[in-house]
Simulated scan of single mutants.
Amino acid sequence: MLTFLAALLMATAAPGAPATPPAAPATLPSPERRQQLLFEAARLGRADLIGPLVKAGADIDSRDDRGFTPLILAAYNGQLATVDALIARGADACRPDRDQGNTAQMGVAFKGEDAIAARLLKAGCDVNARNNAGQTALMMAALFNRTKQVEMLLAAGADRAIRDAAGRSASSVAADQGNAPMADRVRR
């Protein structure tokens, strides 16, 4: 496996950069294993492996066994450089997970990853995208008291009036958590 990764990295080295050939000829792992390596690289923050794995045939927008895309995994695990690498290679920053319909933007609201939230907003996704329960990233940011993300989402045009399937707004979600200042902020 290491010879495969070494060969991938050599193939994408800058022109003129010294390259040391791998010890043995590299053979590509199965398509399934290449896909698994992409998920692992995204989760672990191995931005350097994204390009070579995609070039080797890994699907940048596929979903793992739990329904998460590589971009969702990178975002959720706080891997900003890997999020950038995935988006640069054409990953769909707007693609939700398979089961809950949560986007990467929603995931970083849960995790509190402000820098990644800002990067995802630049990707041009619908700021009012809803998951299967009708919740938006603004609702999640308000729920978890992510003040910076609430400000970013509102500045990007997040709609405070949207209600989820249970009839709750971002303000009522925050109020249900006992967070009156946040409830007031997203109500205005």
Rank of each mutant, 00 (worst) to 15 (best):
74 A>Y: 06
113 E>Y: 04
168 R>Q: 15
112 G>A: 10
103 T>Y: 01
168 R>S: 15
163 R>N: 11
79 Q>V: 00
55 K>H: 12
184 D>P: 01
139 M>P: 15
57 G>A: 12
68 F>L: 10
177 Q>R: 15
110 F>E: 11
72 I>E: 12
4 F>H: 14
50 I>H: 05
80 L>N: 08
22 P>K: 08
150 V>E: 04
108 V>F: 10
6 A>H: 15
52 P>L: 11
52 P>Y: 06
86 L>S: 06
48 D>W: 07
122 K>W: 02
75 A>M: 12
76 Y>P: 00
143 L>G: 02
79 Q>S: 03
99 D>C: 00
2 L>F: 00
28 L>A: 01
173 V>R: 03
82 T>D: 02
167 G>T: 14
67 G>Q: 03
80 L>V: 09
89 R>N: 14
182 M>P: 14
160 R>L: 00
17 A>V: 10
11 A>W: 10
138 L>T: 04
175 A>C: 04
162 I>H: 08
29 P>V: 04
101 G>K: 00
89 R>M: 14
13 A>F: 06
55 K>D: 14
54 V>H: 11
158 A>M: 02
70 P>V: 05
29 P>C: 05
26 A>M: 04
54 V>S: 08
141 A>W: 00
14 A>M: 06
109 A>M: 14
101 G>F: 01
180 A>T: 15
6 A>T: 15
18 P>V: 07
138 L>V: 08
174 A>F: 09
91 A>W: 10
148 K>C: 00
147 T>F: 07
58 A>G: 08
138 L>A: 08
16 G>A: 09
55 K>R: 15
106 M>I: 12
42 A>Y: 02
104 A>C: 07
4 F>N: 10
23 A>G: 08
107 G>E: 07
89 R>K: 15
100 Q>W: 09
37 L>P: 00
118 A>E: 14
151 E>K: 15
173 V>G: 03
73 L>Y: 04
85 A>K: 08
175 A>H: 01
30 S>K: 03
116 I>C: 04
129 A>W: 03
174 A>V: 12
42 A>Q: 04
16 G>R: 05
23 A>C: 06
172 S>G: 10
169 S>P: 05
142 A>P: 13
70 P>F: 13
107 G>P: 07
35 Q>A: 08
28 L>N: 00
146 R>G: 00
9 L>N: 02
84 D>A: 13
18 P>L: 10
147 T>W: 09
107 G>T: 07
80 L>Y: 05
139 M>C: 14
134 G>D: 10
36 Q>L: 06
36 Q>I: 04
51 G>H: 08
57 G>W: 10
136 T>S: 05
105 Q>L: 14
80 L>M: 07
109 A>N: 11
57 G>I: 09
69 T>Q: 03
126 D>F: 14
53 L>Y: 01
152 M>P: 00
145 N>C: 04
177 Q>G: 10
77 N>P: 09
154 L>K: 13
147 T>N: 02
152 M>V: 06
117 A>H: 08
145 N>R: 12
46 R>K: 15
46 R>S: 12
183 A>S: 13
72 I>T: 02
186 V>C: 07
62 S>D: 12
148 K>L: 13
172 S>V: 13
66 R>Y: 09
57 G>S: 11
94 C>W: 03
86 L>Q: 09
29 P>Q: 05
92 D>R: 09
130 R>S: 11
